[in-house]
Structure formats: C-alpha cells, structure tokens
Amino acid sequence: MIKIQGLYKSFGDLQVLKGIDYEINEKEVICVIGPSGSGKSTFLRCINLLEDITDGVVFIDGVKVNDPGTDINEIRKEVGMVFQQFNLFPHMTVLDNITISPRKIRKMDSKEANALARQLLDKVGLADKADAYPEQLSGGQMQRVAIARALAMQPKVMLFDEPTSALDPEMVKEVLDVMKQLVYEGMTMVVVTHEMGFAREMGDRVLFMDEGILIEDGTPEDVFDMPKSDRTKAFLSKVL
C-alpha cells in the first residue's frame, strides 16, 4: 500500500534520511522506534509530504506522492496524521475541529458531518466534549480529539508522530487504548513511538532506525528479543 524507495532527506547540509527502502501492506501496523534525532519523524512526514523529499520515491496506492503532477491534497485526504503536539485548532470547538475538513474538503453537509463527528467522539470516549474548546481539555483528551479529527476524513492509513510523547504519564494509556482499538478495526498504521510496550504488543512489524538508516526490521519478537544489530541492542538496553 505504501512503497518507499531510496528515500533521502537533507535539511541543508544535514542528511537526515540516508536511503530508506520500505514497503507497508494494507492493515499492517508498523511501529518505528529509535533514538531521538534518528530521522523517524522525518521519515513519517515524508510519507504525506509534510517534508519535501530530497531524493527517492514514495508511492501510496500506486500513486507517486512526490510527483509534480500529483495533487498532494488528494493523497492527504486518504492519509490521516496525528501529531505529538496535537495541533488542534484552538479557535474552534471540538466538533468544528472534527467537521471542518469533511465539510470543506469532502463537501459533506453539516448535518452529516456532525453526525459523523459525534460518532467518532463517542468512539474515542469524548461524546460529552463536542462543544468544548481544545484548551478546556487535558492533553490526553486533546490527542483523542486529534485522532477523531484525522479519522473524520475516513483515511486508509493513519500516521502517528509520537502521539503520547507530550502527555503526562497518566494520560498515555487513554490514547494508546484508542489506538489499539484502531488496530483491532484493521486500520493501516505507521506509529513513531517511544512506547515500547505498545510496539511489542500491537506492532505487526517493528522498525528500528538510527542516524537516518533503517537498521532493523522484523516482528516485535525479532526486534525486541533477538536483535541482530549492536546498535539495536544498545538502544533497547537503554529503554527497556
């Protein structure tokens, strides 16, 4: 479903991604782990072209993402993204945060969009927060709204960029629970995370990145229990 070939990314002189090849199939859950600065967030952001790709190609459903002829907005409709800092729209209610894109981009009428939003809020356990504003919510609640907002576009893939890293510890679980529910529903997911428990439990494959290179790729058992690379071992010994 997502095919990445020879992906390079530089910020000026700094090479962040140094040739990544990877393929993600439908309904797969990929957890990307690695030390900070390893390029894992950049990797994720290249998939929906939030970062320009320096070299290489990304295909989503057979469409080349970084092609000048591709309407990136069409691609992004199908690729939901959840950010570390939530990035909810502070001037809109929770309901409007969720419905704005279906209404303006999918041209859904308000009634339908509101019904969809309420259904999604119910799913993430925030049915009573529809009329609240983001700043009235806790971090965990904001992130759950952000997930509902991304789901409202009915994407085929969800990208998670360290979704729990900005949360207080007691709020991590409520967000992970929502993500687990998505896994059970068969959503294709790419999750950049520091939550090793989640990666081990929910990942179909775990990908270890360091210094812009894909070091290790395999089932959670492979990567966590029998890492081949010394770098993986060194990293795991620090975080587990």
Binding site: N48, L50, N73, E74, R76, K77, V79, G80, M81, F83, Q85, N87, L88, F89, P90, H91, I100, S101, K104, I105, A146, R149, A150, M153
Partner: peptide, 27 residues
C-alpha cells in the same frame, strides 16, 4: 501562528488557501 496549525490543516487534505482561510487567519 505555530507551524503545526498549517501542518495539521494540510495533513487533513486542505489546500494552502483553505487552511489559511479557516485555520490560520482567524487565529
């Protein structure tokens, strides 16, 4: 306005102008 606001809008499929109109300018 924080960069993440535009990114969030764009990641939802909004063209730049739409994100500007509904997300950035009101704030």
């Amino acid at each position: 306005i924080e960069k993440g606001q535009m990114e969030a809008g764009r990641s939802l499929g909004m063209p730049r102008g739409v994100a500007m109109r509904y997300v950035i300018l009101p704030q």
